[in-house]
Design a protein around this nucleic acid. Structure first.
Length: 149
DNA sequence: GCCAACGTTGGC
DNA sequence: GCCAACGTTGGC
C-alpha cells in the first residue's frame, strides 16, 4: 500500500464536493510525472486531499483510491478543457483513478504549518517551485501531518 | 538536440 | 493580480 497527496482547487472541486459526491473520477491530470504516480496507484491507497490556489492552502481531508488506474475519458472529448488531440485511443496518454471520500479533517492543516514541520524531511509539496499535483507521501510523513490535526 | 518563447501552476 | 518556477513547444 502506498500513500498519496492529490491537489485540488477548492473553488473548482473541494473536499466538501467530494463528500457530497462520495466518489469522483479524478480527471484532468496532464503532467507526465503526476500521471506516472497515478499509474502506480492501487485501490485502497490512502490519499491526502490538498486545497491549492486558495486563501488557505493546505490538507483538508482524506480520501482513498477507489478504482484501478484507467484512461481519462476527457482526453478524447473535444468539448472538454482537458481534450488532447495528440492522444491515441489505442494507447491513451492520460490516466486517472476514482477517488472516494473518507473524511474531512477537523481543520485544514495549512501549508505554513507543513513548512515548519522538520520531521517531513524532503517533501515534494514544500519544495520551492513545486507544481506536482499528485505526489507520494511516506508513512512517516503521513503520520507527522495528521498528528497536527 | 539546443534553447528561446510561451503557457501553466500556485503561493503570496 | 503579480511573478517565480518550471514544463512544453517549435524553429533552427
Amino acid at each position: 500500500m502506498q500513500r498519496w497527496l492529490m491537489k485540488t482547487e477548492p473553488d473548482t472541486f473541494s473536499i466538501d464536493d467530494l463528500q457530497r459526491r462520495k466518489i469522483e473520477p479524478w480527471n484532468g491530470v496532464r503532467n507526465y510525472q503526476a500521471r506516472n504516480f497515478i499509474r502506480a496507484m492501487r485501490r485502497g491507497d490512502p490519499v491526502l486531499i490538498y486545497h491549492s490556489s486558495c486563501a488557505v492552502p493546505g490538507v483538508a481531508g482524506i480520501g482513498k483510491v477507489a478504482s484501478a488506474p484507467y484512461p481519462d475519458p476527457t482526453q478524447f472529448d473535444p468539448k472538454s478543457e482537458y481534450f488532447d488531440a495528440g492522444s491515441d485511443r489505442g494507447d491513451p496518454r492520460w490516466t486517472l483513478v476514482d477517488v472516494a471520500f473518507v473524511r474531512k479533517l477537523q481543520r485544514v492543516i495549512t501549508l505554513d504549518e507543513l513548512k515548519t514541520l522538520r520531521s517531513l524531511g524532503d517533501f515534494a509539496l514544500i519544495r520551492r517551485g513545486n507544481r506536482l499535483s499528485v505526489l507520494p507521501v511516506s508513512k512517516a510523513q503521513w503520520q507527522a501531518i495528521l498528528a497536527l490535526e
